[in-house]
Design a protein around this nucleic acid. Structure first.
Lengths: 248, 248
DNA sequence: CGCCTATTTGACGCAAGTCAAGGGAGGTGG
DNA sequence: CCACCTCCCTTGACTTGCGTCAAATAGGCG
């Protein structure tokens, strides 16, 4: 009973590795449980001990964490093909929560099935491990961003990353990117207040760096944005195949 | 030619896994090249394509990253037994630099030897993978710390983590912890200016939360510090064995 | 049309940055 | 053994980026 839903994951893996038919079939026949989510739905919470991983099929999800006095930091976003809580395979208590930031579809796969897949196809295991390392690299860049860059560059950098990662996931809608982020959420991701995000966003709009209307992100001048962001691809660890997708 | 130098790594792995004699011997006979470093020495830099990993044997090292205009963010510290650039096994270009923050000894192991070790002893491979996930968890907590906590709590949190991780590595010198951090370095780790670190550090000293003299960190009142830090262990993913070390 | 949520705007305050200068402490060389 | 140099810590005065509070629009949706 091969599933068409798993396609985004296969697409993502293909960016790193040329899959054999056998491997692809094994992926396609992973037993999954689908869930449709609306904006704001929680997928897993801090302290959970999941027995399954979650694969993003469509929409945007975020990993987040709260301080004791209720301030939220959004740690990373995930798009179609990403597996946000792959770590739960090795760390049994979750240190983070994951929620949907837009309407989203996710697929749940029991750990045992992933482990069995690894055992049969170590190359797939390696790619998944690799993807956790790329996520860690993204975290590091965000930390640099939040710790050292002023609000303007910080936001620009955030948008640069989103654009590239959405392009990779095939979510480019003719130069518009359907993130459905509120300014409050952007603030939680950047360590800024919603009010300040608003001020900076208006400024960036005037400068023709980004447009953000009705949840769609538009970049009128990529080079200007990249410049403002002090942006360097390297941390995304793109393969040759992925680079050509991004450049297109 | 079994090496005594690798002990800290074995110690760390033992915190997670009871090693068989065979496994331990394989670890002890890993071919390594030792290097003695002085404070400030660079181990690897952004853009490198290493063919080896680096194991911290003694001292403190840090992973860091610079913005285009020369501001440094320290991303994570590493102590005896840690393997800071394990990621280089799967990602061939480094997105970060690593340097010594004190006099330090590190051991270099060629990738191929680590891969061979994995192949023979998958359990060791799993523990090493796990350790990259714990590092990622630490990064996430730092991001929350930098993004959402005010300077006072931020610093307190930083010290809490250092104490626990140094205890785990067996570096507790009767309640004093030999970090050799300058206030500038602490600032680079916390996204604060050195001047502000100084002001907050003095305040914390007056409150009896931490003492930091001649590179030795002393915690007069652990509970008070923990309280001030909004600190929760969970993100360190300690095993039962490790918890009992920390509580001691 | 009316409600709810998100964006926008303004006024104000503060945490933290910047600049600059002085004082220690450790290391080095004459 | 002293003189000097170099970091680092400390302090003060001043500035500013960003947060907070509060209220006024503007959109989307039932």
């Amino acid at each position: 009973m091969a599933s068409v839903h798993i396609r985004p994951l296969i697409h993502k893996i293909r960016g790193v590795l040329a899959l054999t038919n056998e491997e692809e079939e094994a992926l396609a026949s992973l037993p999954i449980r689908l869930a449709d989510l609306t904006k704001g739905d929680t997928i897993v919470r801090e302290g959970d001990r999941p027995t399954q991983c979650c694969i993003v099929i469509g929409g945007v999800t975020c990993m987040y964490k709260y301080t004791g006095d209720g301030k939220r930091q959004i740690l990373i976003l995930h798009f179609a093909g990403d597996v946000p809580d792959l770590q739960s395979l090795h760390l049994n208590v979750l240190d983070i929560g994951i929620a949907a930031l837009s309407r989203a579809t996710v697929a749940f796969v029991q750990h045992e099935h992933i482990r069995r897949l690894y055992a049969r196809f170590p190359r797939i295991g390696d790619v998944l491990w690799r993807s956790t390392l790329v996520d860690a690299s993204i975290l590091r860049e965000w930390m640099l961003n939040i710790g050292q860059r002023p609000a303007h560059a910080r936001m620009a950098h955030f948008f640069c990353e989103i654009v590239i990662r959405m392009k990779l996931a095939g979510l480019d809608d003719n130069g518009a990117y359907p993130v459905y982020l509120t300014q409050r959420e952007i603030g939680d991701a950047l360590g800024l207040s919603n009010v300040h995000v608003n001020r900076v966003a208006l400024e960036m709009r005037e400068q023709g760096l980004v447009g953000l209307t009705r949840g769609k992100l538009v970049i009128p001048d990529w080079n200007a944005l990249k410049e403002a962001a002090d942006f360097d691809f390297a941390y995304l660890h793109l393969t040759q195949a992925q680079k050509s997708v991004v450049d297109a």
